[in-house]
Design a protein around this nucleic acid. Structure first.
Lengths: 300, 300
DNA sequence: GCACGGTTGTAATTCAATTACCTGAGGGGT
DNA sequence: ACCCCTCAGGTAATTGAATTACAACCGTGC
């Protein structure tokens, strides 16, 4: 129902490149890889040189520029130069986790990847879209959340948070139940689908069903061109880079959680006269389950 | 007709421009002024536009480039872009979220808090203790995970991850079930209790029960002096600072996830000849549930 | 097997950047 | 005062990069 989200995401260039990658044609992906492999190097190349490096034609390079929302090649060079200039300030701990890494290495790499996922997600997050989602959720009689596997925990987390501020929300991970639930939604309700790749059939189907019944649909995914994103009225993109070894949905999940936290706080702010107070009250409810010896009084 | 000017100065571009200024011809000085006045603006101009702004010709602009030691105009643009990008690096955000904050503020603050939680948790994480936990989990016939509310999702996440590498793990959030399960543990088994405050009765009790039956007990908590930490054989501490407004277990949960990711990878490394391969295989299992349009093949 | 949509490259074209060359203004030296 | 030399500054031609128009190609579904 709501306005179609802008086709071109904003935010740091390289983040955007990674996000659009899967939706690109093979030759364009070669260009993308060349750019990601050596951003500052590419900034120094002419279009013909880059075409050469990516074993393709100048035309494809131009097309690649348009795909990632840059009007022309010179502009790409500029942005690349600007970007890599800022990158070099804080060095990358970089590299994927190797089988032989020590535990200390693992901790360092995981922490770095998570930090980066959070930072980049925040940078590129479409606040406009987020505020539309907040508004929709705030006045929705009911909110459905769809997610499978690791994303199901994210859905559950949001469900629980929304409950704490008296919003009606349901997190479904079972396909059939999710579809039935989606069919019961109506105008004004909100359906949120969560999937890192944006290609999980179950989630896409549930969201389609929800849309069919007039609900506002929201996608939380890493890939703005994915089927899930195309299905949704509003898209919130994360910016995580999963690698094979840590494929178990690690930083992607962290990024998703950050997004839903922002969403939650936004809703809390707009729904409650003083959300702080409401949260304190629910905290009091679980106080009986706390042991002494800690000044702190928050949950879990 | 080159090398007329003295020693080629190096260093930041704009500094160089200022330094050479007095030695320039009037028309070139006008160019220099335009550049100094709006570096990033100039980076966006073509040579003709800059010539226009400096009320001179393209030729003079080129001459200016050579004067300051830059081979051509495109290179000047690149350096200008890079330079001005480094100038404005984001300031620290800090502070708790206020009821009146805009969504953009919220996003910035949440991201900052999460980043910090991850960084600080990694810094203070006891790798020695972690490696003991890894060893225990790696050879445990069975692993029990206890967590309530938000921490229960963390427990579920770890359960699911361990399953993917064929470790037997159970996440319990129901008090009674957790206690019964704990009572069935034995020597060699591992029980992990997750609680931000470390004061959740249910989790502490379950861990005590597990200890009574000879299991190795592990606490994941923010507070090393908490009841939970005192109960456990091994303690992994997080370093999140929750505040009232964002009390819904936000960065604490992120920090916990980071810890369990490290734990998981450690276990994966020590258990499997090649964990990477095993993970790829499980990824293939869900491939049928993926839609096309994505070259990418990771889960959720 | 054929039509279609999407991908890619070739060739033509446009436009930015660079160079070659010209003009005119000052500034001695005779 | 005149001439010549130098050098700032610009015009116009040239080069080469970037872009667009178009055509060939390939897999896919009917």
């Amino acid at each position: 129902m709501t306005s179609v989200t802008s086709p071109e995401p904003t935010g740091p260039l390289l983040v955007r490149v990674r996000a659009v990658m899967p939706a690109l044609a093979p030759a364009e992906q070669r260009v993308a890889n060349a750019v990601l492999a050596d951003p500052s190097g590419v900034a120094a190349m002419t279009i013909s040189e880059l075409a050469e490096v990516a074993s393709t034609s100048e035309t494809t390079v131009i097309r690649f520029c348009k795909q990632i929302g840059v009007p022309g090649y010179p502009q790409l060079r500029l942005q690349l130069a600007a970007q890599s200039a800022t990158e070099n300030i804080r060095p990358e701990v970089g590299g994927d986790i190797e089988p032989g890494d020590s535990l200390a290495d693992v901790v360092g790499k995981v922490a770095f990847a998570d930090e980066r996922a959070v930072r980049e997600t925040a940078q590129q997050l479409d606040v406009e879209a987020l505020s539309k989602v907040v508004a929709a959720v705030a006045k929705a009689p009911r909110v459905d959340l769809y997610g499978t596997a690791a994303s199901s925990f994210v859905a559950l987390d949001l469900q629980q948070k929304l409950h704490r501020i008296r919003r009606v929300a349901f997190a479904w991970s079972d396909v059939h139940v999710a579809l039935t639930s989606a069919a019961l939604l109506g105008e004004g309700d909100v359906a949120i689908g969560i999937s890192h790749t944006g290609t999980t059939v179950e989630v896409v189907e549930a969201l389609e069903e929800a849309a069919k019944h007039g609900a506002t649909t929201v996608a939380i995914t890493n890939f703005p061109r994915s089927p899930l994103a195309r299905t949704a009225d509003l898209v919130l993109t994360t910016a995580a880079r999963e690698t094979t070894y840590r494929s178990g949905a690690m930083s992607s999940r962290i990024a998703q959680l950050m997004v839903i936290d922002c969403l939650f706080i936004g809703v809390a702010q707009s729904v409650m006269p003083d959300a702080r107070k409401a949260l304190e009250e629910t905290a009091i409810a679980v106080r009986g389950h706390r042991l002494k010896s800690s000044v702190n009084d928050q949950q879990n």
